[in-house]
Amino acid sequence: MKTRVVRVTDWTSPVPPVYREVRAATPEAPEGKPPLLFVPGFGHGAWVFAEHWLEHAASRAFPAHAVSLRGHGGSGPAPKATLRAYAHDVVQVAASLPRQAVLVGHGAGALVVAHALARYPARAGVLVAPVFGGWGTLGAALRRNPVGTLPAVFGGALRLNHRQLFSRELPDAAARDYASRLGRASSRAQWQLLRHRAPEPAVGNPPLLVLGSPDDRVVPPAALTRAAGRYGAAPLLFPGMGHDMMLDARWREPIDAILDWLDKDL
């Protein structure tokens, strides 16, 4: 697909501003590494990265930030938000950072990042357990969690349960606690996850890394391979982990792999 330069929608219906929650961890001794911007998936807020990944990245000298998409976490309400508004949130925060940022999207946040990459030349893109949507995703979700998924089909909230999100290695209490803190994306955005135009091509030719788990119960292995294939790569796999890799018991392994890749490739 070609990059289109006549962008009437961008010009004539700008996304309205909103208060955006940004959590950050800064390295003690900055070494000039690029800032990271973590983008949570639907229902998740910036807090999911503030649990472990932000501090860990900062301890490895990466300035680390996480944004809550509008309507999520501590950001302002946005019951009618679209995928475009979410991508706008990501680009706004990225452009406000002092240096060109690496965008890291998780779950449906990876799709948001893919859209943001078409509007901001990121230093690199990282897609973690990407949910690129489509009817297959719905099928898998219905099979695993019909009670939590069915209402979403009729505009209600998509409720992911802790067994979909975490491996059994994470103590049950922690898993239930995390799951209880989840919110929801707007109904429009939920629908767009099923039916949306493919993201426009990334600008600035950033290197891309895709990672996930073969045991993810939200993203079937085939969907993971397909998402990685869009970027001409094979996914980096972390067997045994659940979908929410940044909260799961072995959260350290994927973030270290991401930071190693950035240290090596940038």
């Binding site: 961008d10 700008p14 452009a95 509007r119 901001y120 600008v203």
Partner: peptide, 15 residues
């Protein structure tokens, strides 16, 4: 106006 003036890959702050 702002959306017609900013660089297409580096928006001005939306506020």
């Amino acid at each position: 106006s702002k959306p017609l003036t900013e660089y297409p890959d580096f928006p001005m702050p939306d506020n």
